[in-house]
């Protein structure tokens, strides 16, 4: 065992475990793992204070590859395990790694309730819109009509959108990033960690075996500028390359495209300025509902607002109980209320 080093002195290698990584070649998970390992030493958290918790699925193998504490749990329930860990030990930095099937199908209930409680957790949902580990069935985020092993004629269930789900559950921090965009992902991970409360991050991830190219438009350097909209706090909602620049205006809850010829100032042209801190969740929801091919897919932080965390509110109640009643005394408890003595 190596002696503990200060967090500042750690490198990516210190967060890499000795286990062989067993994802398929070309899987988007490799890039996510590498970026998480890269960001970890930059967060200033001692390695022993970091816990990765996962459910079941390809994404959920993640904890085995991190040289931190890790708990690979059962299908869909990772947020509930993480909740117990965080309530027990608020000083730990707890990261949940889940996928679209694990988090939104079997675990949808736990994701909903964990998000609304606003524990100070990071939840990374790898969305590849397919079940990989069970070899290619459609998932709750698969596009309507997708043909898969379990839907040879095409799916007939309407998909759920992770970002809109999180917003609807009352998330205080919601972001989206892309597996191949290292810089953006690292920036997003930093933001998620800095947020006090549940930080929900959807990571668009390619499954080269069962759903290859699902996110090609936003991954490919040639198309991504026109297919995605990068959200920046205080910046207008502008996308496209210089020749074909457009903006988005949110009008009474409906998005409208505004062409931006060269030289036109987007704000003067009426393009909405991004505000992740706005009280109204409706704005974030409009953004999240932007859909290809008519609109670009937003990437970045949709929403970042403050609300007390569950564990802090619980601690307040504990402090209050201690202040009012003093530290619990077992003998006093057992003999409280009506008692009587039988003589010897």
């Amino acid at each position: 065992m190596t002696a503990q080093k200060p967090a500042a002195g750690l490198s990516k290698r210190d967060f890499t475990s000795d286990q062989d990584v067993r994802w398929c070649p070309g899987c988007g998970d490799y890039s996510i793992l590498s970026n998480v390992q890269k960001v970890m030493p930059e967060l200033g958290v001692p390695r022993e204070k970091v816990v990765f918790v996962s459910g079941i699925g390809c994404s959920s193998r993640f904890p085995y590859y991190m040289n931190t504490y890790g708990f690979h749990t059962i299908h869909g329930r990772a947020p509930a395990f993480a909740t117990g860990i965080k309530i027990a030990r608020p000083d730990l930095s707890v990261w949940v790694v889940t996928g679209d099937g694990d988090g939104l199908s079997i675990g949808g209930n736990h994701l909903l309730h964990t998000i609304r409680r606003n524990l100070d957790l990071q939840i990374l949902l790898f969305n590849n819109r397919v079940y990989g580990l069970t070899k290619g069935q459609y998932s709750p985020t698969s596009r309507l009509g997708m043909k898969s092993k379990s839907s040879p004629q095409g799916t007939i269930d309407h998909p759920v959108d992770p970002v809109r789900f999180a917003l609807g559950a009352g998330a205080t921090f919601v972001a989206r990033t892309v597996d191949v965009d290292a810089k953006h992902m690292q920036e997003t991970l930093h933001r998620a960690h800095a947020h006090k409360g549940t930080a929900f991050v959807e990571i668009l991830q390619n499954c080269p075996v069962f759903n290859d190219g699902e996110w090609a438009e936003v991954e490919d350097k040639k198309t991504r500028d026109s297919a995605s909209l990068v959200l920046r706090q205080g910046q207008p909602l502008v996308f496209g390359d210089d020749e074909n620049r457009q903006g988005i205006r949110s009008e009474h809850g409906r998005p409208r495209l505004i062409p931006l010829p060269p030289g036109v100032d987007p704000v003067e042209a009426g393009v909405t300025v991004h505000d992740e801190r706005t009280d109204s969740v409706a704005y974030s929801y409009v953004l999240a509902a932007l859909a290809r091919p008519k609109f670009p897919m937003p990437i970045g932080v949709f929403r970042a607002v403050g609300r007390p965390t569950y564990e802090d509110l619980l601690q307040d109640q504990i402090d209050e109980a201690l202040q009012q009643r003093g530290r619990g005394d077992l003998r006093a408890l057992l003999t409280s209320g009506d008692t009587w003595t039988v003589g010897g």
Binding site: Q4, S17, E48, S54, I56, T68, I74, D91, L92
Partner: peptide, 15 residues
């Protein structure tokens, strides 16, 4: 072993 203990980082799970 509880998380937070230096030098004892390890992974457990259902496998």
């Amino acid at each position: 072993v509880a998380p937070g203990t230096p030098g004892l980082e390890h992974r457990i799970g259902g496998l």
